[in-house]
């Protein structure tokens, strides 16, 4: 290499690295500044997961869930059960939908012809049907296939199929979001990464994904809010979540007796709980988005 500065200076710099530098490293500063919001986000997720596990533990009989709930007044009890179940469904459907969306979105940008064809078919089919029909269809197929098999819990299996169908519907939308996110990263970015010798995996991890997520985050947040509301559809297959509880309560307490006030009160309460969940989730995602915002990488908005 050249005899000039280039080669000489670099060792010069490195030799001084032994010196005691008190300033925090870049890595440390990134972790410090992003720590707070990450802690809030993870705290929220942890709470939901904990609530879900608590509910699950009671459901499988580790403690007396019914007794614990009976301490609440009757309507409060139904609403609490419903809220817990809705949160529980969220913890399953959201990651599942995202996983499907990510995989198929990535496959949509694949260089392999077959990968693109399969992913496109998935997207069009699962996006082109009302989720409620998808859920009913999935449950039906499961029942037909596994009917008469004593070794499995048919109801649990069918419910699971319904949950997967809902996740797949959302996954089809998320696949399009992920695809657009991947395509939004200019080729110059990957080329530059290649030019400094990064491997394919490093480029994906450190260049493509971080840029893609910043662009996709608002749309993903949108989709999550839609998905939370769509968990109400699981009431049609016996999921004991909020909408199911509302239907149950109004049927038992109000509709038969024609009690108009009570019907309205029950559904407004249910609506408020949904509103609370969607509000918290969308605000959290907005905060995350603000925290990770980078000038010049704003998401394309309508």
């Amino acid at each position: 290499m050249g005899t000039g500065g280039t080669k000489d200076t670099t060792p010069l710099v490195r030799s001084s690295s032994g010196g005691s530098e008190k300033a925090p490293t870049l890595q440390e500063r990134i972790t410090a500044s992003k720590g707070l919001i990450l802690r809030i986000a993870f705290g929220g997720i942890a709470t939901v997961v904990a609530v879900f596990l608590l509910y699950l533990a009671g459901y499988v009989g580790l403690y007396d869930l019914d007794y614990a709930l009976s301490l609440l007044p009757p309507r409060g009890r139904a609403l609490t059960t419903g809220l817990l179940a809705t949160l529980g469904f969220m913890t399953v459907v959201m990651p599942l939908g995202f996983g499907l969306g990510f995989f198929f979105g990535w496959a949509r940008t694949s260089k392999v012809w077959l990968g693109r064809a399969v992913a496109t078919t998935y997207v069009e089919l699962f996006r082109g049907m009302p989720p409620i029909v998808l859920i009913a269809f999935a449950v039906l197929i499961t029942i037909v296939v596994f009917r008469g098999n004593d070794r499995i819990d048919l109801f649990a299996f069918a419910s699971l199929a319904g949950v997967v169908a809902l996740a797949a519907h959302s996954g089809a939308y998320q696949a399009e979001i992920i695809r657009a996110g991947i395509l939004s990263v200019p080729t110059g970015q990957t080329e530059a990464a290649e030019a400094i010798g990064m491997s394919k995996a490093t480029i994906l991890r450190h260049v493509t994904l971080p840029q893609m997520f910043r662009v996709s985050l608002p749309a993903l947040g949108n989709e999550f809010a839609s998905l939370i509301k769509d968990t109400s559809l699981l009431s049609t297959i016996g999921g004991l979540e909020l909408t199911f509880q509302g239907k149950n309560l109004s049927a038992v307490l109000a509709v038969g007796g024609g009690n108009l006030d009570l019907v309205i009160i029950i559904w407004v309460e249910i609506a408020l709980l949904y509103f609370l969940i969607t509000f918290v989730v969308s605000r959290t995602l907005q905060a995350v988005e603000r925290r990770f915002r980078v000038p010049g990488l704003e998401a394309a908005q309508l």
Binding site: Y173, I178, A300
Partner: peptide, 19 residues
């Protein structure tokens, strides 16, 4: 409007919370 047809992916469902 935007340079690319429908930002953030064509056919994103218009029924989220933040438009």
């Amino acid at each position: 409007g935007t340079a690319e047809p429908t930002p953030a992916g064509r056919g994103v469902r218009p029924r989220g919370l933040t438009l």
